[in-house]
Write a protein that binds this DNA or RNA. Sequence first.
DNA 1: AGTCCACAGGAAGGGCAGGCGA
DNA 2: TCGCCTGCCCTTCCTGTGGACT
Length: 402
Amino acid sequence: MDQKSLQDMFSEYLEKTSIFKNKNALSLQFQPEEIQHRQNQINELAGILTPALRQINPSNIFIYGSVGTGKTLTVNHVAEELQKTAQSHNVNIKLLYLNCKMKKVADTEYRVLSQLARELGETVPSTGLPTEDVYNRFFQKLDEEYSQIIIMLDEVDALYKKIGDNFLYTLTRMNEQLVNAQVSMIGISNDLNFTQYMDSRVKSSLSEEEIIFPPYNAFELVDILQERAQLAFTEGVIQDGVIQMCAAVAAQDHGDARRALDLLKVAGELAERAQKEEITTEDVEAAQEKIEKDKTFEAVTAQTKQKQLLVYAILDLYQEYGTMLSTGDVYKKYTDLCKKTGMSHLTSRRVSDLISELDMLGIITTSVISKGRYGRTRHITLNISDEIVEKIEQHLKERFYL
DNA sequence: AGTCCACAGGAAGGGCAGGCGA
DNA sequence: TCGCCTGCCCTTCCTGTGGACT
C-alpha cells in the first residue's frame, strides 16, 4: 500500500461512522447500573451484609457458580451500594476485594497478605519481611482504622489450591486476634466441588451462608446482551439473529455471559475491520474461530523457553506418530532438541511437572496409563487444531532457529 | 504369586534474585 | 555491608503404582 492510499484509508476510517458507540460496555470490567436476572442473589447477599451497617459482624458467605454467571459483578454491585450507604450514614466499613487467580498477587501467603495490607494503605515490600511481620502490620492497621471489614476473595479455590487451607483457617479466625475491628469474609468460587477437599473447620466457618449462582439460560443471555449492545453499538448495526446466536453459543458453554459478551465484541471488531456497516451471523462464526485460535496461540507463546521447546517436541512427535505419545518419548525428543539448539536440558522430573502444567493450560491432555510389564506412563494428546498447530510451529521454529 | 518396568509424583533442599532492617 | 527472609526454578532422592510377563 503506498502512502497516498494509506492516508485515504485513515481518512476513510475517520469519516465513517463507527459500529461501536462505547466498546467498554462489552468489557468484563463494565459495571451496569442494573444487573439482570440476579435479583434473588442480590437480595440474599444484601440481607446477609446489612447488619454491618449497625456494626454487627455479618456471617461469612460462600458464593458458588460457574464462570460468567455474574458472581463478581453482583458482589461488587452490592459492596458498592453498601459502601455508599455506610458513607452517607457515617458508618465505618471497609471492603477489600482480591482476585486470588491473579499471578504475582495471590500465589503465596505472603503475597496475599501484603496485597490486603496495601489495600489498607500500608506499605509492604514485595519480598523481604517475615510473613509474621506482615500479619502483624495487617492486623494492626485493621484495628487502628476500621471497625467493620469485609474481605472478598474472588476465585478462592485458586488460593486454596496454591497455598492450602491453613491460610484460610487463619483468616476465618482473624476476629480472635483483633480488638476493635471485626472481619467477615466472602469467598467466591467457580468450582462447585472444591470445599469437599477442604478442612471441615475451614469449610464450616467460611460457608456460614451459601449463595448459588445458576448458569444463565439462552433467554436470559439474550436480555443481557441486548442491554449491553444498546450501550455498545450504534443503533441498527446488529442484524437479526446475531444476539441470539451469541447467546445460544454461550448457553451451551455453561451459560457463560462473559463468553457471550466477548463473542459479540469480537464479531463487532471483525465487521468494523472489514469496513462493514452491519454485524452479521457470519461475523459471529468468524469471531468464534478467532477467539479459539488466539487463546491457544497466546497460551503457548506466553510460556517459558523450556516449556515452548517442550511444546515443540510434542508437536513434532505428534505429526510423526499421531496420538500415541508417552512421557518417555517426549522427554527423549525434548533432550534431542535441546542438544540441537545448544540449550541445557531439564531433568525428567522437572519435565514431568511441565507436562502437567501444559495439561492444566489445556494445551495437551494427559492420562496416566499402565503398560504392564512395560511400565507406567502418561498418554499425551494434543488439544490444538491442525490450523493452529501450523501457526505455533512456525513461531517456535523462528524462535529456536530450527 | 511374585517380578519388573517406566514412570508418577511427594519431599527436601540448593542456588539465585530481590528486598528489608540494623 | 551483612544477616535474614521470601519467591522461584530446579535437582536429587525416594516411594508408590498397575498390569503384563514369568
